[in-house]
Amino acid sequence: MDTKAFGLFLPPFHDPSVSPHASLHRDIEVCGVADDLGFDEIWLGEHHSSGWSTLSSPEMLMAALARETRRIRFATGVIPLPYHHPLHVAERIVLLDHLSAGRAILGVGTGTYVHDMEMIGVDPASVRDHFRAALGTVQALLNGETVNTTTPWFSVKKAVLQLQPLRGPGAIETVVASSLSPAGIELLTDTATTPTVHVAPPWGSIRPGMDPDPVGALIERVESYRNKSAGGTRIRCNVFVHVADSPAAGVEELLEGFSALRRGLYRNTLGMPIPDSPVAHRKTLQNLVDTGGFIVGDAATCAERIRDLMDRVGDPVSLNFFVPRWVSHRATLDQLTTIAHEIVPTLVGGFEGTAESIRLTSEEAARQLKSRTELVGNGGDK
């Protein structure tokens, strides 16, 4: 993978007023368009409750998508390890690796929805320790080891993968959802995994003014992680980008969908103490734009701010554009097309050749015009 890469992060959010079947097929269309547009990877999440988060098995969707796509890599974003037996997690990601011709990325985390945990008897107080134990077992299996271990949450006895990763043991990349806290950094360095992190924290918990510099805070955590890791480790940043005529116009385009998700999912369903007023939602969204947690503006402005973010994070970096679909499905596809056609080429030098050719041709045309003018002035052919 190049030092810079670009992908999409699709949370499993689906408006419960829209047909769940239709929502799923819209996800499929987004993934197909992402492949056609040349994005490098796509992250698909997993939840089991709330009515809004209805994608329960990202691996199944990815297996279907593998037959319909050519090059894009598929990342589980994320599999909550405390919800599954680690042997089964390892087996499913290896099967996906084969079905996708080596395009699978294993993204893992602890899980976030308490009701997800309660339905299957997982103690929310245990998920961090449970996660760490499960991660060690999954990694050992993916590395081709035979594993014997007993924990308070699971046991494995002479466990071995019958099917190895397509390109051999250890070939599947493991990525951990992390806030890059001190404990998170310790986990990443101990397990030799790489992080995926949001530029802004989960938007249901954001309050205006709570984080005056989300990008600066992220860069501090990234630097701390890289100082303690082996160096040269890839950072995946999930960032929301919306292209509009101006930041103010973008806020107006986003406000209805942004407010509906905060109200319907985070406040009314998950019980977060979010003020439910148009003023509160607008102030929160505006604050995210003003502080750089969200990147909103015309294509040139967005490209400039994304370049600054990537430069500050440093190579290697993958930027995954967060796609919560706060605008209509058609507008979402248009946004992805604009990002792929107008912003990503700017970030990778895709316009430099044409710009240089225009400059050289213009200079030559000016030189030729001057030469012809001088010739005519000296009595030459007209």
Rank of each mutant, 00 (worst) to 15 (best):
M1T: 13
F6D: 03
F9V: 14
F9K: 02
P12T: 07
H14I: 05
D15S: 05
P16K: 12
S17E: 14
H21R: 14
A22S: 15
S23E: 09
L24P: 01
C31H: 03
D36M: 01
L37E: 03
F39T: 09
D40E: 08
D40I: 08
E41K: 04
S49F: 13
G51H: 09
S56K: 02
M62E: 07
M62S: 06
M62G: 02
A63E: 06
A63Q: 08
R67T: 13
R67Y: 05
R67Q: 14
F74R: 12
G77W: 01
H84S: 05
H85Y: 09
P86S: 09
E91N: 09
R92H: 08
L96C: 06
D97G: 09
A101F: 02
R103E: 03
R103D: 02
A104K: 03
I105M: 04
L106I: 04
G109V: 07
G109S: 06
H115N: 15
M117V: 14
M119D: 08
I120K: 11
I120V: 15
S126L: 13
V127S: 07
H130Q: 10
A133F: 00
V147C: 08
N148I: 05
T149Q: 11
T151R: 06
P152D: 08
F154C: 10
F154D: 07
A159E: 07
R167M: 11
E173F: 00
E173G: 05
V175F: 00
V176T: 13
S178E: 04
S178F: 01
S178Q: 02
S181I: 08
S181Q: 08
P182R: 06
G184Q: 08
G184H: 14
E186M: 03
T189Q: 03
T196R: 00
H198K: 01
V199Q: 02
S205D: 06
S205Y: 13
R207G: 08
M210T: 05
P212T: 12
D213K: 13
P214T: 11
G216C: 12
E220N: 07
G231P: 07
N238H: 09
F240T: 13
A244M: 10
P247D: 03
A249C: 06
V251Y: 01
E256R: 15
E256A: 15
G257T: 07
S259Y: 02
S259H: 06
R263W: 04
L265A: 14
R267L: 05
R267Y: 06
T269M: 14
M272V: 12
M272S: 11
P273S: 07
D276G: 10
H281Y: 15
H281G: 04
L288D: 13
V289I: 11
T291N: 09
T291K: 11
G292M: 11
A299Y: 01
A299E: 12
R307F: 03
N320H: 06
V327R: 01
R330T: 14
A331K: 15
D334T: 12
D334I: 02
L336E: 04
T337N: 01
H341R: 13
I343Q: 00
L347S: 04
V348E: 11
T354I: 15
A355V: 10
S357T: 10
T361G: 05
E363M: 13
E364G: 01
A365C: 03
A365Q: 07
A366Y: 00
A366G: 05
Q368L: 15
Q368V: 15
L369Y: 05
S371W: 04
R372D: 04
G377K: 12
N378Y: 02
